[in-house]
């Protein structure tokens, strides 16, 4: 990745034009050709530096459910439980953390009601209690990574 890639990442985490030639519009602002911008995005997606290029949806406004969940998984059981939890399509991401509450994952479901049923299924499959910690109030959301 070079400086141009970094600038692309910084700019396109803010917004992307909704216009008939959006890549051209961005490319002009970056001082490169439309083809080069598309190629660079393609390469960053292929190298898994980007997770996606497209819309970020607001789960609740789409009518979906979203929640952060945690499980207290002992070290020796971590592999098994990880595989079981990740087998659910509703698990959007899953991180280990250095705490007794060692597994933290996000559930994204088609309806809000489905959150509880997925949690029940995960509890039955893993044998562990799932602590459901949905957002109650949002104070700040600004997840951007400057390069």
């Amino acid at each position: 990745m070079d400086k141009i890639d970094h600038t692309i990442i910084n700019r396109l985490q803010q917004s992307f034009p909704i216009a008939d030639r959006p890549y051209l519009q961005e490319a002009e602002a970056l001082g490169i050709s439309e083809g080069e911008l598309i190629q660079r995005l393609q390469a960053m997606l292929e190298h898994k530096q980007l997770s996606r290029f497209g819309p970020m949806y607001h789960a609740e406004r789409l009518g979906g459910g979203l929640s952060l969940c945690a499980i207290r998984v002992p070290k020796e059981d971590f592999e098994r439980v990880t595989a079981q939890v990740n087998s659910f399509a509703e698990v959007a991401h899953n991180y280990a953390r250095n705490h007794e509450f060692s597994m933290w994952f996000v559930l994204a479901t088609e309806t809000p009601e489905r959150i509880d049923s997925v949690i029940e299924e995960i509890e039955q499959l893993t044998g562990y209690r799932v602590y459901n910690m949905p957002k109650e109030k949002e104070f700040f959301v600004g997840l951007r990574f400057e390069l």
Binding site: F16, F53, G54
Partner: peptide
Amino acid sequence: SGVIKRMGIIVR
């Protein structure tokens, strides 16, 4: 209307 929070890059 906020259904789409933003368009663009989501990084790893």
